[in-house]
Amino acid sequence: MPSLKDLRNRIASVKATQKITKAMQMVAAAKLRRAQTAAEAARPYAERMSVVLGNLASGITVGPETPRLLAGTGSDRVHLLIVCTAERGLCGAFNSSIARLARDHANRLMAEGKTVKIICVGKKGYDVLRRQFAEQIIELIDLRSVRQLSFEQGDMIAQKVLARFEAGEFDVATLFYSRFRSVIAQIPTAQQIIPAQIEASTGSSDAVYDYEPEEGEILTTLLPRNLTVQIFRALLENAASEQGARMSAMDNATRNAGEMIKKQTMTYNRSRQAMITKELIEIISGAEAL
């Protein structure tokens, strides 16, 4: 049986923890609003981009001249997984569910005898994956010093990926991130980015396009940009998802702390009363004995 002082200390410490989780929840809520606006603002660009790309690609027959970013290298032996996670923990299952999706994907590919290479964006995914894939991880991109995500970060990552692609280091690249649906629902997603997945054209445009400069030239500049846009979008979706996940995780933690305080206070009061009763009995029986 813990003493009254122990119980008091325990209650105080749970209360302090609750204050922290409560504050973290509020901070996450404020950050979420900003991240969500940013993610939603970036969606139109990414959507238009795939429409434009779809229009363009539908008019092109795949041949030896087609850029490799669209047609692929002709093999799928080496796979690159770009795993985007958060830089910080305490956000529920957010990091682990992305890492799990990536791990399953990597295991499946390796079982098929493919070579797997991993680029980690964000420290948390790296921490989880390095235990199993220490040899496969070729790079860790740290975004901890970045306060506000901007297009440059997406561009920076895309350039690194492109440089490796040009050097022939991999054939297929897949991007792992968490799509933000709502505060309580974040969907870990795997998206193949090289070779580019083209959505079928809406079919509305049978018209003959004028290209300026040449069709192929536009395509060669458009494809790397599409890569940047997809990565940038993944980063933004991830940022929003992270805050959403943290918010609900911290909400749960606050609620649990509240329950714990209630239970502990009950025990504390019970043992305090028991103590008083015991003392009373002692006094009364002492008086009776006289």
């Binding site: 363009l56 445009s205 018209a207 003959v208 396009y209 290209y211 300026e212 400069p213 536009i218």
Partner: peptide
């Protein structure tokens, strides 16, 4: 500001794609 010179787009322009 197209790469090959400025161009003005008016209503009913032919389908065009330009950098």
């Amino acid at each position: 500001p197209a790469t090959e010179g400025d161009m003005t787009i008016l209503a009913g322009h032919a389908p065009t794609m330009t950098a």
